[in-house]
Design a protein around this nucleic acid. Structure first.
Lengths: 339, 339
DNA sequence: CTGAAAGCGCTTACAG
DNA sequence: CTGAAAGCGCTTACAG
């Protein structure tokens, strides 16, 4: 059996209560006692048992991380590791641990979230996505559990702490940029429309067209799910339209390069024949040919702030709801050309 | 306060012990009682408190995942999400949760590992890397904690459960393949030599040269750390040698494409002037130009087996040590040419 | 400044 | 088949 507080107490000739107070650095304990106890702790190799501690203080010092589903989006998309890096960094600052959802289906994950929150495995939750009609978010919202969301919630928006980019604005800026280059037929290959980010970007796209008095053509919209690879067929269909687009906006750099490869197979040059613009600024995108014009959405910062928000709520349940918008930046590289 | 076993007991007119036994599906409890208790549990919305349960059974049902350090290797390298996906899938099968290390430096991570194991936050550990002289592995080895390693341990190799590819064999095969294409000057840009995988591959590289009676030229070895981006300078130095290589082997696809971009900047064509071969088979590598010849090392399987191994040890501390070799496969694509 | 006691929410011999 | 009691390893009023 491991060393417990009792062993330390006995060895240091004090009570377990005193040892506990030394661990907590209680100011009412004399420095002499503290010193003595600390020495015996070190000497015996004592480490506090989290289970026991957590049970009595009713806290866990850990944050649950929920991804959409492990099989698809979360892991293939380079978004995940980077946002996790941000969360991890902020959590570590506050000595919080990270507990990961492992479910493969929405239903499994839902059960996991309930059990990890009700079962007091975590103090709070970060939802790594915002999806329309999401049961998990609804559950979190209704049970008074501290949580934050990466992405704007579609409902209860004003009563949930979340971090997001200005997706509408980003998309508008991107489309404006392309319009400025002389493009009129601009296609949009977004993620699945169940994700709020996709809807927001679509809205920004439409806004920009409207302002420029360009008509909206539904044929130019391809909304595959974020998770799956780009369908070659969708690209082919797009380029075989009566009036094929001269520019395509995609929602992720890797998708963009997959797209570009299909275009090249069809002898369509980027940016010669078609301009391509994307999101996420993957580390590779400046090195590949063509270097990709892309929007850096500061994924790491999204993670930092998501952690910050849930930590606020954990520390004080009455902490005001906050919404943080992380800046984005369009990086012009060689995948777009002026007409 | 949440619903406890006592509330259920009272509502169902049984003792807390009985409720506990129903949760455990103890066969000595009558079906009638079970039914009654289960109904009240559902009715009251009871969820077992893990902290309490874990405290008494001295288990946590969670595995700690340790990555080299979050700031660098783990997150940028696409290896991490994929191996995590494998671990996650296997852990979920056994209803185990995943607890992530968050430390940014080796020292921080070392402290974390001690505290999460001694503090009984996890039942076992998966080390996502194998590094020479690693304090953490040494600690795990000395304290009787269940753990497994992704990568061959450099010490205590026979007494630690680990999963790995045949790195020596892989590198040999790769170099043989290039030699078969007529290459003689083959450069090797491996990861940092503190990682066993890098050393093993280097050995395989040397083996292959030897067997082909080609001399080993230290100038053709570039060992940057796995974590950092490829130094443009190193590439330049390599190609400005008296006898520059006609083929380069790198340890990751993304690194390979970064390399290719530098070569292109230097007006060196791949595969025209130099062949490039890599490891990891990134999903993008078949789509990019040139499509990359690369070794698929079955990262997902590495994760599955790493989880399997630690789970074995958790279930039975006396379980025999196992070493699992996951198959790899050289995928020939367009980045190598015959001389 | 320190200790004895109760309690966090469970499980599990021991009895019956 | 079921219950009363002890205990997992801590923390924290309450006393002194």
């Amino acid at each position: 059996m491991a060393i417990t507080i009792k062993d330390v107490a006995k060895a240091a000739s004090v009570s377990p209560a005193t040892v506990s107070r030394v661990i907590a650095d209680n100011p009412r304990i004399s420095d002499d006692t503290k010193k003595k106890v600390r020495e015996t702790m070190k000497h015996l190799g004592y480490y506090p048992n989290f289970q026991a501690r957590n049970l009595v203080i009713q806290k866990t010092q850990t944050i649950g991380i929920i991804m959409a589903d492990s099989a698809t989006l979360a892991f293939q998309n380079p978004f995940f590791p980077e946002v996790l890096r941000g969360i991890s960094s902020r959590a570590h600052e506050s000595k919080f641990g990270l507990y990961l959802s492992t479910g493969a289906t929405t239903e499994e994950i839902y059960e996991e979230v309930i059990s990890m929150t009700q079962g007091k495995r975590v103090d709070g939750i970060i939802l790594l996505y915002s999806r329309i009609g999401d049961k998990i978010m609804e559950y979190l919202y209704n049970s008074n559990i501290p949580f934050s969301v990466v992405g704007r919630p579609d409902v209860h928006t004003d009563s949930i702490s979340y971090v997001d980019n200005d997706n509408v604005g980003n998309a508008r800026e991107v489309v404006n940029y392309l319009i400025g280059l002389g493009h009129q037929g601009i296609a949009y290959m977004g993620g699945g429309l169940e994700y709020v980010v996709s809807l927001d970007r679509l809205k920004g796209y439409q806004n920009a067209l409207e302002k420029a008095s360009l008509s909206f053509d539904p044929d130019l919209i391809v909304n595959q799910s974020i998770s799956v690879g780009l369908e070659e067929q969708a690209v082919r269909r797009l380029m075989e339209l009566q009036k094929p687009p001269t520019a395509i906006v995609t929602h992720d750099d890797l998708i963009a390069y997959e797209l570009i490869s299909y275009l090249q197979d069809m002898k369509i040059d980027v940016p010669g024949d078609v301009s391509v613009l994307s999101f996420n600024n993957h580390s590779l995108s400046e090195h590949l040919k063509p270097p990709l014009s892309t929007v850096d959405i500061s994924i790491y910062e999204l993670g930092i702030h998501a952690a910050e928000l849930v930590l606020e709520k954990i520390k004080d349940r009455e902490a005001p709801v906050r919404e943080i918008t992380v800046p984005s930046r369009l990086i012009e590289r060689g995948s777009c050309r002026s007409l």
